[in-house]
């Protein structure tokens, strides 16, 4: 098991701060949870504690960006999405070079329950025309993505996990913005996974190999821009496409892939693994993943039933 991607963000931003003096980090009283704390200790003059004021924090970050800074603002993804109008006008429409760092994504956060779980963030953010919407699968990818975001122009949302995730990348991994990251080849079906579910899906596919199933795996770290060519290519190769995400199946990666497949008139049939249009609740992360079929066993069960039908 690798570390949570929020920790990767914390490590990466504190390191990048040494080289890139324009980086500013803002947090709304969650620096211990979002892991912006290490940056705040290392560069107190470039860290702003904004109090429990997400909307003002978003506007302030836009002002800093307009003056040439590279602001990373941090909160739980749920609380950032909750200030969507400030994001759409002050950041999106104004093309502010702001990096919105949303941690505590999905039901994987566990016991705190629904109000703290970002389950609609991908759906909301990807409706903004210029918003890059990114979600790393593991530690190595999260750090590569952070380096990429220093040079990226325009607003970006990066979605991170509270819980540890399975590592799927090696140290020589090259992050390519907007491109599907093909991890496993397969002939019976392919899974398009994003975030921490990429590792769970990887293990599920390995399990099914012994049962004679050949399933491919593509990691969609970029929900926007979406690698449409990759989706179309796979739709011509396999009969079944499955998406996997810790997000509502409406509007996130599953929704985005459905749009591409429908417009292409592609023959492959889609099944969406995720939170099936219901609110989250309290429970251990393990119990919640088991209930929603997002753990390795649950994903393997779904893949088997989809491919065999």
């Amino acid at each position: 098991m690798g570390q949570a991607t929020r920790n990767s963000f914390g490590d990466a931003v504190a390191k990048l701060g040494e080289e890139f003096k324009e980086i500013i980090v803002l947090d709304a009283d969650l620096s211990k949870s979002t892991k912006s704390e290490s940056f705040s200790k290392k560069f107190p003059e470039r860290f702003f504690q904004m109090g429990i004021q997400e909307a003002n924090m978003i506007g302030v970050a836009a002002g800093l960006a307009f003056a040439g800074k590279i602001p990373f603002l941090c909160s739980f993804g749920a609380f950032l999405t909750g200030r969507f109008d400030t994001i759409r006008v002050t950041v999106g429409y104004a093309d502010a070079n702001v990096r919105l760092v949303g941690t505590h994504s999905g039901i994987g956060i566990g016991e705190d329950g629904y109000s703290q779980m970002a389950l609609e963030d991908l759906a909301c953010m990807r409706t903004l025309p210029n918003m890059a919407v990114l979600q790393p699968a593991d530690d190595i990818e999260a750090k590569a993505m952070m380096r990429y975001l220093i040079d990226h122009k325009g607003p970006a949302y990066i979605r991170l996990t509270r819980q540890n995730v399975i590592d799927v990348h090696k140290s020589d991994y090259k992050f390519q913005f907007g491109k599907g990251d093909e991890i496993l080849a397969g002939t019976d079906a392919v899974v398009f996974a994003t975030g921490g579910l990429t590792g769970n899906t990887f293990e599920a596919i390995q399990k099914l190999k012994s049962e004679g199933l050949s399933i491919g795996l593509v990691n969609f770290h970029s929900i926007k821009p979406l690698d449409k060519e990759c989706i179309v290519k796979w739709s011509q190769k396999v009969k079944h496409i499955i998406t996997a995400e810790d997000h509502n199946i409406l509007g996130g990666l599953g929704g985005a892939v459905a749009e591409v497949l429908a417009e292409q008139g592609a023959g492959a049939k889609l099944y969406r693994i995720g939170v099936r249009d219901t609110y989250g609740e309290s429970g251990t992360p393990e119990a919640l993943y088991e209930k929603h079929g997002l753990d390795v066993t649950g994903i393997a069960r779904t893949l088997k039933s989809v491919v065999k039908n």
């Binding site: 003002n56 836009a62 002002g63 003056a67 006008v89 104004a94 093309d95």
Partner: peptide, 28 residues
């Protein structure tokens, strides 16, 4: 709209938001 006309400095119209941008500019 600061994308079409950058000298306006901020895109506003949804009330209550521009003052926060001004704060960010002042902090910079």
């Amino acid at each position: 709209d600061r994308v079409r006309l950058p000298i306006v400095e901020a895109s506003t119209g949804s009330l209550g938001q521009g003052i926060s941008v001004a704060q960010g500019l002042a902090m910079a």
